[in-house]
């Protein structure tokens, strides 16, 4: 027998995938498959939407309804899917360059409206597919294609951004925390509202190599050694600074709020207008 237990959720004809050796995106996809199994959601009622970039390829490898969208616009496409077919569970799978830089506004407003989607943001501290440019989360001092003398910009704290914009479920894990990540993803899949999960992942080819941080395995050891699980910590205090030698992980926000177009009021409002027109 030579078949992986997750094979029924994968487009196996497209494997091996294109991610570099030591990249963690495949491991997060492994956790996502695990989460789908745990949550009990059928493959028929799951849609995976992704933007452009390395992590944007996830939609192409999963055997579910999937949508590979334009750069930064994964959330608008997903919002449309979630509104048009409320029975569908929509997951957005993309990177931080796509979701926070190019599609930054969409992230903010989808969180504010509390659209019923789940967002998985793979944070590898750089733009991977386009050649390792400065991303919103690149740490200060890092060498990238666009900052050859080191970045001088303050990196963005993604969990704080999502929480302050109004997301109802906010968590962060690293690629090393595969079991916790699978459980968190499963919880987010069954919850209603806008959930945001940041996953720290090594980029061995660009970020790690340019900054002499070793390879994928070394970064995984760093994640293992310096991660501190602190559930319910305020996202404001969950900043990522490599100089602190501390990565705060866990589930930071869990709250309930009215979901976008979920209340009967909003539906009747639209219907009334339609009748008038």
């Amino acid at each position: 027998m030579n078949s992986h237990p997750s094979d029924s959720y994968l487009r196996t004809d497209r494997l091996p995938h294109l991610w570099c050796p030591g990249c963690g995106i495949g491991a997060t996809m492994n956790s996502f498959v695990e989460a789908v199994k745990l949550s009990g959601i059928s493959r028929k009622s799951l849609a995976v939407v992704s933007g452009i970039g390395c992590s944007g390829r996830v939609a192409g490898y999963l055997k579910a309804d999937s949508f590979h969208t334009t750069h930064g616009r994964a959330i608008p496409f997903a919002t449309g899917l979630a509104l048009a077919n409320p029975g569908l569970r929509v997951a957005v799978y993309s990177g931080e360059g796509d979701l926070v830089a190019i599609g930054g506004n969409h992230l903010l407003h989808a969180a504010r409206r509390n659209v019923n989607i789940m967002v998985v943001c793979i944070n590898n501290f750089t733009y991977g597919m386009t050649g390792g440019q400065l991303a919103p989360t690149t740490p200060i001092g890092s060498i990238t294609a666009t900052t050859p003398y080191g970045s001088t910009e303050m990196p963005c704290n993604l969990v704080n951004l999502a929480a302050s914009a109004g997301a109802v479920f906010v968590a962060r894990w690293t690629v090393f925390h595969v079991r916790q990540l699978a459980c968190t993803m499963a919880e987010a899949l069954v919850r209603r509202g806008f959930s945001f999960i940041e996953v720290l992942s090594p980029c061995p080819t660009l970020h790690l190599q340019r900054n002499n941080l070793g390879h994928g395995e070394t970064e995984m050891r760093y994640f293992k050694e310096y991660s501190r699980v602190a559930n319910n910590t305020s996202p404001v205090e969950a900043g990522l600074d490599r100089r602190d030698r501390k990565i705060i992980v866990g589930t930071f926000v869990k709250r309930e709020r009215a979901v976008f177009f979920d209340s009967p009021d909003s539906v009747t409002l639209v219907r009334k207008k339609k009748v008038k027109a």
Partner: peptide, 30 residues
């Protein structure tokens, strides 16, 4: 690509961490 090998099969506890960590869906436990 260099492959891992099974050095001591008898001590496997079946925790399947290797299966979950593998980014390439290339290892699993029976």
């Amino acid at each position: 690509y260099p492959l891992p090998c099974i050095a001591s099969a008898a001590v496997c506890t079946g925790c399947a961490l290797c299966q979950k960590l593998c980014p390439d869906f290339a290892i699993f436990i029976e």
